[in-house]
Every structure is written in structure tokens, then in C-alpha cells.
Design a protein around this nucleic acid. Structure first.
Lengths: 234, 234
DNA sequence: GTCTATAGAACGATAGAC
DNA sequence: GTCTATCGTTCTATAGAC
């Protein structure tokens, strides 16, 4: 029991940490600033979460647990609709990108923060954070890759992987600093306008997956595994 | 004059700083670690560069000055070839992406580091770094946007800007952690294989620019400027 | 469970001798 | 130009009272 309890201390810490990590990255955010915003003592963080890394893990789990569930439900629904036939690429991409954007509206008023968090963390330098983040979505990622492969069977696996990474790179980049993006495009691109962002990404990358193969050999190719060397010229 | 001078102290500091910033980001890298790697004293950094931010600015200028020159040369050559006609989208994208990749081989043995630096810095949380980086390429960026617009005149400006940002997001993401990308794709995607990376990006995003418009109105549209609100549903 | 107090280390930056 | 020494701050983390 305590006095300042519009919410539990734990929740307040998670909210403040989420915002700090989203704005400043894992390294840039400090626990002192977080506990000040959460109106709790520094020691409280260690009591509940053990360490800064533990706090980050809890921030992840709170948001990304439900997000994973939503992905699985959406995938199940998608497969049911398909009845064994390959899915339209647009449908797959929309299903893949929508949950993260939905979360941003569902988790109000912290929603926009969650978007930035995803963007920021996807390109965080710290390997501990990389692994923490990746562990949350490893299976989901594989599921989408399989659907894409089934819908573009002629595309070599290497090509699919490259373009798949391009999607997440673009997504993270756009999400991690919406204000900057809006500024440098003179207000023409606003990531907070999530319907437009979704439509633009689906249109761009569905077309991208339909582009001709780049790898020289077929789907069973190993050409992606070629070891590049210092004599490669660009 | 001094003893350990396989290179000048200034160069050694720049090399070490470049590597540290590329690996750990601006905040994550510490001056003490940099001066240790450069085998100089901490005060030397302040003598030459004034501050940590000044050091980062010098790191940028050393690499991105020549990079800008290369962009302008490539653009000039491109326009000459075109003779006033719209350029093929593939040609524009290849011209736009190649200099950064060329730099990676030209600046050996620091080349790979420069690639990671570009990727890391493009999504750095610190607004000072954002501005420092953006200032290096503002005009170059505008030049490529104009060429793209001329080659896809039917595409609304908002659509062009969205997809343009997707490109840089994908590029930064792939560059900033090549080792991670290679690992999670089971060795099928290796950003150090720069010819393949370039070909994959050109193929994917040239097709992306040819995808139908998403914004409802024409090139003079303002629909991108719509203020989204909290009731937007995804 | 929650607090105060503080350890112990790392940080950016500067002063001043040579 | 280059160094040593150090200031003042901030950080993660912990010990121990209540």
C-alpha cells in the first residue's frame, strides 16, 4: 500500500521506462530519470526488476507478449481464409505490419511511445538488447517468411530474406523518430497517420517482392552464401 | 613530433572514434576508450576537437565531405547521360546508393566501419547527431528526390517521400549491423557482399516506386498533410 | 515493500606544468 | 603540442533501517 497510487508503482515504472527507452535508447536512458518520472525511489526498480536490463525485459514482455498473441491469431485467420492457396502478397504484409500499429492505438495514452520503442530497439547497438528483442519474435518472423515464400515460390530464398530485412529496416526507421520524419518531409509524411503508413509500406514492398529475382540461381540456391572478399568492387 | 607515429595522432583518434561510434553509437562510445585505442592522452582529444561532439563532427567531415563530392560527380554524369529525358529508376537508385558502398571499399581497412557508422548514426536518438548527419546530405538528398520525381511524374509527392524514407531506413538497418544480419539469415544475406546488397536494393525499390499511387490525389496533393488524430483506427 | 544513504566506478571536461 | 592530475557530475547497484 502506498499514497501516490493512481496506478501501481510497478506500472508507473514500466510506463516511465518505456518512454525513456523509446526516446533515448537503452544506454541513453537512466534509471534516475525513470524513477523520477515514475515518482518512486531508485531502489524500487531493483526490488521489482533486479537491474536495468531486467527492467527492459519487463517492458518488452508487457507489450510484446500480447503482440505475439495477436500475430498468431492474425496468422491463423489468414491461413483459414486462404484454404491452402497462396496468399496475395499485400494480404501477408498487411497482416504482418498491422499488429504493431494497432498496438500504438490500443495502448493509449502510451501508444505512440510503443511505436518509437519498437523502432528504437530494432536498431539498438547493445547485443543484449538485440537478443532480448529478437527472442520475442523469432517464431513469428519465421511464420511470415514461410507465407511469403509460398506466395512467391519462384523467388530465391536469399532474395526473400533481403527484401524481408528491408521491410523491417524501413519500418523501424519510420517508427523510431516520427517527429523527425514529419519535419524533413515538410509535413507530407506523418508516421502517426498509421493508415497511410500501412498502405504505403504494403504498396511499396508488395511490388518489391514481385520484382525479378536478383540471385542467379533458383530457390534452392546457395549463392547468397558466397563468401565475399576484399577484392569485391562496387 | 612524437614517438608512436605510424600515423598522426589526429588520424589515429579519428580512426578509433569512427570505430567506437560505429559500434556503440555516440552515447555508448566513451572518449576514454577511444584515446586508449588511439594510444593518446585524453586531453589530446580536447586539444584537437574541443569536445566529444566536435570529434563526431570531424569524423563526419572526413568521410562525408568526399562522399558528397562523389555524389555530385555521379549526379552530373547521370544528367549528362540522360540528355534531358527522365532517367530509368534503376539508374537513379544505383547512383544514389553506390557512393556509400564504394566508400566502404575505398577507405580500407576502415571501410566496413564506415558502413556501420552510416547505419548507426542514421537512427541515433540524439538530436545533435541527427542534425549533424542530416546537414551533411541535405542538398544531395534534394537532388535525388528531384530526379526520382522527374522519372515518376505520375506519383504524388507524398508517395515519393514515403518510399524514399523506406529506402534509407532499409539501408541504415542493413548497414548498421552486418554481422547480425548474416547470422539471422543463416549466412544468406551478407551486407559485406556489396554488389549483391546494391542489386537487391535497386530491384526492390525500383519496383516499389513503380507501384500504384496510394495517396488519393495527384502530385499537387496535400493529403499527406492531413493532421491525424487519436480516433484514427488501424 | 519502501525508504535513505552511499559505495564504487565511469564519464566529459578543464587547469596548468613542461 | 603533449602531458598529469583532478574536478564535478552521473551512473548502476547495494546495504540496511523501518
Amino acid at each position: 500500500m502506498s499514497q501516490p497510487s493512481e496506478q501501481s508503482r510497478k506500472t508507473r515504472i514500466l510506463d516511465a521506462a518505456e518512454r525513456a527507452f523509446a526516446d533515448l535508447g537503452f544506454e541513453g536512458a537512466s534509471l534516475r530519470q525513470i524513477v523520477q518520472a515514475a515518482r518512486v525511489n531508485l531502489a524500487t526498480v531493483y526490488y521489482y526488476f533486479g537491474s536495468k536490463e531486467g527492467l527492459m525485459a519487463a517492458v518488452f514482455e508487457r507489450r510484446f507478449g500480447p503482440l505475439r498473441d495477436e500475430h498468431w491469431e492474425a496468422l491463423q485467420k489468414l491461413d483459414k481464409e486462404a484454404q491452402g492457396y497462396p496468399l496475395p502478397m499485400e494480404k501477408i504484409l498487411e497482416t504482418m505490419l498491422r499488429p504493431a500499429l494497432r498496438l500504438a492505438t490500443a495502448a493509449a495514452p502510451q501508444g505512440r511511445t510503443v511505436m518509437r520503442l519498437i523502432g528504437r530497439i530494432a536498431s539498438d547497438p547493445d547485443p543484449r538488447i538485440q537478443e532480448l528483442f529478437r527472442g520475442q519474435f523469432r517464431e513469428v518472423r519465421q511464420a511470415y517468411l514461410e507465407r511469403i515464400h509460398r506466395s512467391a515460390p519462384e523467388l530465391p530464398e536469399a532474395d526473400i530474406l533481403w527484401r524481408f530485412e528491408f521491410i523491417w529496416g524501413a519500418f523501424a526507421f519510420v517508427l523510431c523518430n516520427p517527429a523527425k520524419l514529419e519535419r524533413i518531409t515538410g509535413g507530407m509524411c506523418n508516421p502517426a497517420d498509421m493508415n497511410t503508413l500501412l498502405a504505403q509500406m504494403v504498396a511499396c514492398f508488395a511490388a518489391g517482392f514481385r520484382a525479378p529475382a536478383v540471385s542467379r540461381t533458383g530457390p534452392a540456391s546457395r549463392c547468397g552464401k558466397r563468401r565475399p572478399n576484399a577484392r569485391d568492387r562496387v
